[in-house]
């Protein structure tokens, strides 16, 4: 007698638990099941969850406008199949001018992480990170405006479908103008560590 011949599912379950020998190994069915599972895994559009994303990024930049301490970028957005689009709050330490050598600046702006390539399991991804921000607060009040753009690649690994860590590099471009009418632009290279959760 084989378990497959028992139509009642509860009775079949009890039979399988009490008499496992009733379940014979069918290599053809097993091969089909395995093949379909693999195809499903590879053809799946994503490994990770999609939804509301919350993340934090710690950035170290050299040669920028006096970034002496790690900058913090916090973002809230939407994680899709191939892109994460969000609004970021940036907290940075920058050089404003001769009268006020450094100041903490808060900026906000959009950020986009675009998946360029991924591994077979889709847990490892190569991203292109693009972000822009505009100053909304500076500690000294000496800044008239500051606009920052950042672009660069990063590697992201999904530790689970809802959480990922990424390490990346970027080139950043800053345009600053103080209230005295002096303006300048700077180009810098930075590196960043990201943690993101998707809910």
């Amino acid at each position: 007698m084989h378990a497959e011949s028992v139509s009642d599912s509860d009775a079949r379950g009890r039979l399988l638990l009490e008499m496992p020998d009733c379940s014979h190994f069918d290599p053809v069915s097993f091969a089909k099941l395995k093949a379909s599972w693999l195809t499903e895994a590879i053809d799946s559009p994503r490994y990770h969850r999609t939804g509301v994303a919350f993340g934090v990024e710690l950035e170290l930049a050299e040669g920028a406008s006096g970034v002496a301490l790690p900058a913090t970028h916090v973002f809230v957005g939407s994680q899709g199949t191939t892109a994460l689009l969000g609004l970021a709050l940036d907290l940075e330490r920058v050089s404003v001018g001769a009268m006020a050598p450094t100041a903490t600046i808060a900026s906000v702006g959009p950020s986009l992480d675009l998946t360029l390539a991924h591994s077979e399991t889709r847990r490892s991804e190569l991203l292109l990170d693009i972000a822009a921000s505009y100053r909304i607060f500076d500690q000294t009040g000496a800044l008239d405006h500051r606009i920052t753009g950042r672009i660069g690649p990063s590697f992201r690994y999904w530790l689970s479908p809802s959480f990922a860590a990424a390490i990346g590099a970027n080139v950043r471009y800053d345009v600053l103008a103080d209230t005295g009418g002096n303006s300048r632009t700077t180009v810098a290279v930075g590196s960043a560590l990201d943690l993101v959760g998707v809910f």
């Binding site: 969850r49 919350f54 689970s160 479908p161 809802s162 959480f163 959760g197 998707v198 809910f199």
Partner: peptide, 11 residues
């Protein structure tokens, strides 16, 4: 404050 259904990631 919030968690995924698997409770492995939390806000």
């Amino acid at each position: 404050l919030a968690a995924t259904p698997e409770h492995d990631t939390e806000l």
